[in-house]
Structure formats: C-alpha cells, structure tokens
C-alpha cells in the first residue's frame, strides 16, 4: 500500500484534532478556553494511565497519586523556591517517576483486582501523607499562589503552553506504544504466561511501564497547579484516580486517542452539566452506564465495530 496513504490514514485524526485545538481560542469564550485547557491536561493524565490499563491490561486506581506528586512538586518548587515553571516540569516527572518506582515495585507483583486494590491503597497513602503534613504541603489547605510567569498568566497563553506540552507528551507516549516495548505491553495484556515463555521478565516490564505512566501522570499534574493557581490533597485521592478510568472507558482503552476523546466528553459534560445542576456525579454515572452497556469498547470501539476504521487503524495499519 502507498506509504503516503498509510500515513494519512494513520494520522489524519490527531492532526485534525491538533489544528482544531489551535483555532479554538479564537472561536470560544474564555470560560471554554479554561475548559479545553482542562481537557488537555486531564487527557494527558488519562493517556498516561492508559499505558497501564489499555496497553498492559491492569487497572490502576491510584494514578492520581503520581498526578498529585507532580502537581505538588511544581507547586512547592514555584511557591517555596520560586523556581521557573519550565524547570519544574521535568523535576515533577522525576519525582512522580520515583514515587511510581517505589510503590509500583510492590504493585507489579500482583495482577487483576489485587493490583487495582494495592494501587488504590498506595494512592490513599500518598493522599494521607500530603493531607497530614501541614508544615510542608499545607495539609488540607493545599498550596495557593502557584502563579505561572506573567506571559502565561492569561487563559489563552497558558492554553497554548498546555497544548504544546501535552502534544509533546502525547507524541512521546505514542512512540512508546508503537515501539517493541509497547508491543511487549500488549503481549503481557493478551497473554502474560506466553510472554514469560518467550523469555521476557514480565514483572520488570510492568514496573518500567508503571514508572513511565507515573512520570507522565506527574507531567499532567505539573501543568495543573499553575493552571488552577493552587493544588489540594484531593488531587491524589481515589476519586480523582477514577477520572482517567472513566475517560479511558468512555473514549476506548484500546485506541491511543481513546482517553483523550474520553477527556473531551467527560470534561465538556462536566462543565456543561454543572451549569444546570449540582448533580454532576449523577449525570456522569448515567453516561458511564450507557457507555458500558451500549458500547463496551468506548467511542472508538463502536467506530471500529461499525467498520469506519479497520481493526488496525490510527497507528495500527501494518504490514500492508
């Protein structure tokens, strides 16, 4: 098959989404720019989570811990040490990665529901440490005054900054998922036993992936603090860990862009519905029920089922 055709078939959707994201601030109000900024940050968070869920086949209910570590690292460095935002981002990835390495070491020894429960337990552990450590983290008051530099202070410049960081993050994640390492994750998901018998140390690969996922969750968290001007312990809580789960399930966990599309649906609905009612969790619950019952593969799952994409689409057209 023509290489140009394969390239277009694979990348038209992310490229189109990127260009739509560029022109959005020119056509929507500032409120919606904030909403779309949130979509980008949470979309990166969900995509990072999906390395563990969609690609490796293990459900983590504790990725918010690494998101929170990233957010707090940036917050503390900016508020207490006046570090520039640019320097905080890689350090946040590093601290979140270290957190994921330490806690993930124990989690990857387990599978299935036990993995999910341990990730959640460790997430709660991080939450309580941050919640209780008043002298360092501000406890339940959180940290305020995490202001981005002046040129990023307004909604639109910060939106473009987020767009740039998230785009770079997503490109790196995409490369990882298409690499031999990414295929080894799929192999572990599909058949852990067979993967061991072809000579792969499954536990080691799961840990490396957990750390990579944690680092990118940390990057998303690092973008959140200056966006929201503050961070609070809730960012690490189990409820916040549920958001990327919802997003991945809504968008489609077996498609690279699924979690980002899930973030669009989830965050947009949240912003829209909370304008009318305070019962947002009721609405999100109903949406999840509909998604699980009517389209268990998420939005991309149903699109594939209807035959709009081949089984190997957007980054998966191969060996033609």
């Amino acid at each position: 098959m023509d290489k140009k055709y394969i390239f277009i078939k694979r990348f038209w959707l992310p490229v189109a989404l990127f260009f739509i994201a560029i022109i959005l601030p020119f056509v929507v109000s500032e409120f919606w720019v904030h909403v779309f900024n949130e979509i980008l940050i949470l979309g990166l968070f969900a995509a990072a989570f999906n390395l563990v869920f969609g690609y490796m086949g293990q459900l983590s209910f504790g990725q918010a811990a690494y998101y929170g570590i990233g957010a707090y690292t940036t917050g503390l460095l900016m508020v207490k040490l006046q570090w520039p935002l640019f320097a905080c981002l890689p350090v946040s990835m590093l601290t979140a990665g270290i957190g994921a390495l330490i806690l993930g070491y124990f989690c990857v020894k387990l599978r299935g529901i036990y993995f999910a429960i341990l990730t959640m337990a460790f997430g709660q552990l991080v939450f309580f440490i941050i919640f209780q450590w008043y002298s360092f983290t501000g406890g339940d008051n959180g940290l305020q005054g995490i202001n981005p530099p002046e040129w990023l202070f307004k909604a639109i410049p910060y939106y473009y900054f987020s767009l740039a960081v998230v785009t770079i993050g997503m490109i790196i994640l995409y490369f990882i998922t298409e690499s031999p390492f990414g295929y080894t994750l799929r192999a572990i998901r599909d058949n852990t036993e067979r993967t061991e018998f072809i000579g792969i140390n499954v536990q080691r690969y799961m840990l490396i992936n957990f750390v990579i996922s944690g680092m990118f969750c940390g990057l998303a968290g690092a973008l959140w603090g200056p966006f929201n001007r503050s961070v609070a312990p809730d960012l690490c809580g189990w409820q916040h860990s549920g958001h990327p789960v919802f997003m991945a399930v809504m968008g489609g966990p077996h498609h690279f862009l699924g979690p980002m599309i899930g973030s669009v649906i989830f965050t947009f609905l949240n912003a829209f519905v909370t304008g009318f009612t305070e019962y947002w969790p009721l609405v999100s619950g109903l949406v999840i029920i509909v998604v699980v019952l009517v389209m268990p593969g998420g939005v991309f799952g149903i699109i594939k089922e209807k035959g709009y994409f081949s089984p190997r689409d957007v980054g998966d057209v191969k060996n033609e």
Partner: peptide, 26 residues
C-alpha cells in the same frame, strides 16, 4: 497459547524481538 488480539505477524515478531533482546527499545 498465543496472543489473540495481535495479528499473526505481530505474534511472531514479538517472539523474535524478545529473542533479539530488543523489547526494551522505546
């Protein structure tokens, strides 16, 4: 005992890449 969601080609390639110690390539 195979990888049901991967193509036949990807199944075999996965095993070859493991043998060639290239699975840590990111």
């Amino acid at each position: 005992n195979i990888y049901p969601k991967l193509t036949t080609y990807e199944n075999v390639r996965q095993s070859i890449l493991a043998q060639q110690k290239r699975t840590l390539n990111l």
